[in-house]
Design a protein around this nucleic acid. Structure first.
Lengths: 199, 199
DNA sequence: GTCTATAAGCAGATAGAC
DNA sequence: GTCTATCTGCTTATAGAC
């Protein structure tokens, strides 16, 4: 209430929220095209049709933009890892992990590939997750199990990196979500030695 | 001969060649740590213990450094693709492709992961390969075959990206070449539906 | 919420001494 | 082959008008 600067009545700045969302979507696209360090605030501002100063109204630093871009996928990933850790049987744990991971990859496409392979993004989100250990390590550990042999460990690495990058691959961008999800889950299960689900 | 500036007698500037090699090795390390765009000439110079101007004596531009870093792996990759394309039977083609690709990944470790995922490197080498089509496309095409179904296409993408990134993963850096090679080849074959070679 | 204007610093790159 | 010194342009970031 008070004497705010709202102009649309109910919501707290619909135009502002929209600009922020557009900004994050634009930043994600540019990050995947040029890398996080290869993307300047000027490029983001130009793509949005605003000035750099307008961008700074929404985010105090460039790192803050990088964190905000990564945050949704990161949170969902954390939730899947936590859930998977509660399963006692190794098979069920792998199944839950693969299903959840593939689902996140498919819904966010380029995002997971981005923070699997972009050092700039990795550095920015490390500050966000200062307390909590690296996700990748936990994912690998849950997927490969305790004291894994070499081939299982390597398979887990190939599965995670491969699924993340394939999900964001431009050549597969035309695939609809359901087809991509099924295919990625199938290769993940094959890699980790899980039986195929029946049709 | 003439009145050159050689000081070591036989070779054409041993110290210079050594600096050039050290420069490329240092650049590769920094590129994988910070990304190509995230690595400045100042960082490279500092790591070498020389000034930026000394770096410019060896390479005219930063792009030239990027290309020179990628070149050895790129050439070997091109050779493997050409060889694989000569096989008539699809199984033999896949076998040759996987064996050759894994071998390059293992011997260069971080390199293949770098130009699989770094947009800065990808852009720089596109200028080098202006005539020849994108490697990745040809690799995928040879691996998945003509008119592949969705699951085969996705499997090929996961295999290439996964093998490249797993090969450069810090967590697997301690594995000796032979163990890594065997494990990567095994997962690649499993993904592409090839039978296991007998022990 | 977006603008203009500007500061301070670092980027890639070059000239010329040694 | 490496150095010092320098240039230009772009980077992140801030101050203050509208």
């Amino acid at each position: 209430m008070t004497t705010g600067t709202m102009r649309t009545g109910a919501a707290t700045g619909a135009a502002g929220e929209d600009t922020r969302s557009r900004l994050l979507a634009t930043a994600l696209r540019l990050f995947t095209e040029h890398g996080a360090e290869g993307t300047s605030l000027q490029m983001i501002a130009d793509a949005l049709g605003v000035t750099k100063a307008a961008v700074y109204y929404h985010f105090k630093t460039k790192d803050e933009i990088t964190e905000a871009v990564a945050e949704p996928g990161l949170r969902e990933l954390a939730a899947v890892v936590e859930e998977a850790a509660t399963f006692r049987r190794r098979g069920a744990r792998i199944d839950h992990l693969l299903t959840g991971f593939v689902d996140i990859v498919v819904r966010h496409r380029a995002l997971v590939a981005l923070f699997s392979s972009d050092p700039g993004v990795a550095r920015a989100i490390e500050k966000t997750l200062h307390g909590e250990e690296r996700f990748e390590k936990r994912l690998i550990a849950l997927l490969a199990g305790p004291e894994p042999d070499t081939s299982t460990l390597v398979a887990a690495h190939v599965a995670l990196a491969g699924i993340a990058l394939a999900g964001g691959a431009p050549a597969l961008a035309d695939l609809d979500d359901e087809s991509l999800r099924e295919a990625l889950l199938a290769v993940g299960r094959r890699l980790m030695g899980r039986p195929r689900p029946r049709a």
